[in-house]
């Protein structure tokens, strides 16, 4: 198996290296890839959409269909993860572990015992080896809002700087995952439950597809944002810029929710009781 694989890989590699001799030199401005359709995007983008970041303009406007179906792929991945892994059976664990914070003593309480009430002195923990990490928790509590604000900036400023819905959505999801890692999965699901994440996945895709349908209802092609000029009260070029922002927000919501869903299900193997 190993020898066969190695031979196969070396044959494939040598064929590809032979093919690479026919390639245009590295960084050639006249190469076929940069001489047909891309000059149009570079030269006309600001004129057509008033978006200086060409990647955002091409991503959400010229190739809007492509991005919409990419978003649907991500949505499908989140849903598939839930279908494959989620266990809805509620089984209460036999014993619970609590830590008495002032003394640092770990209490193991059997199912018939009386669980301590929710207070500042007792903290429920997942397993015996979980340390009492005040510094990590406090730092994450301080950092998470700033990460979220940065993510919103990345989504909203994607027209003028690197960024956009995908990156901002991933950073928003990462903030939530950081919270879940630093505290535990139960407190994260209290903040952002399963129903909410699935609803947000759907809402993101719905915003994207709904913008397209709205353009169609207003008399132009699907995802042709210049149709929104009348609704938004601006000229068609600015309307395309605003339309890009709307779909980027949709993409951001969908990506954020899918990342959080993936983490919740993978970290708890579908049980949503204890995380990393």
């Amino acid at each position: 198996m190993k020898i066969g694989g190695l031979i196969l890989v070396v044959i494939l590699g040598s064929v590809l290296i032979y093919g690479s001799l026919e390639f245009p030199p590295w960084g050639d401005p006249a190469s076929p890839a940069s001489s047909h359709v891309s000059p149009y995007y570079i030269e006309k983008s600001v004129e057509d959409t008033s978006v200086p970041n060409l990647v955002t303009a091409v991503l959400a406007d010229y190739r809007g269909y492509d991005t919409m179906f990419e978003t649907i792929v991500i949505f499908t991945a989140g849903i598939a993860c839930i279908f494959l892994l989620r266990i809805f059976r509620k089984e209460e664990t036999e014993t619970r572990l609590y830590r008495h914070i002032p003394t640092g003593i770990t209490l193991r309480i059997e199912k018939s015992g009386k669980f301590p009430e929710k207070s500042a002195a007792f903290e429920r923990i997942d397993s015996v080896w979980v340390p009492h990490d005040l510094i990590v928790k406090t730092t994450c509590r301080l950092i998470v809002p700033f990460i979220q604000i940065f993510a919103l900036y990345v989504i909203a400023h994607g027209h003028h700087s690197p960024g956009g819905g995908f990156q901002g959505g991933v950073i928003l999801g990462a903030a939530m995952i950081l919270y879940a890692v630093a505290f535990n999965l139960r407190s994260a699901t209290r903040r952002m439950g399963e129903r909410l994440t699935v609803l947000l996945c759907t809402l993101g895709v719905f915003i994207y597809a709904g913008t397209g349908v709205l353009c169609m209802l207003l008399g132009l092609n699907y995802l042709d944002y210049s149709a929104l000029a009348g609704v938004l009260g601006v000229d068609p070029v600015t309307a395309r810029s605003h339309g890009i922002l709307i779909v980027e927000i949709g993409v951001g919501i969908a990506v954020m929710a899918v990342m959080v869903t993936l983490y919740y299900n993978l970290a708890s193997a579908g049980k949503h009781d204890e995380g990393l």
Binding site: I42, L54, V55, D66
Partner: peptide, 27 residues
């Protein structure tokens, strides 16, 4: 040329989605 960037940007995010499904199957 921005065109390869656009195509690959979405490919990266789809890659992480497929990674999630693959790890689900592993579990």
């Amino acid at each position: 040329n921005p065109l390869p960037h656009v195509l690959m940007l979405t490919a990266i995010v789809v890659a992480v989605a497929t990674l999630g499904v693959a790890l689900t199957l592993v579990i």
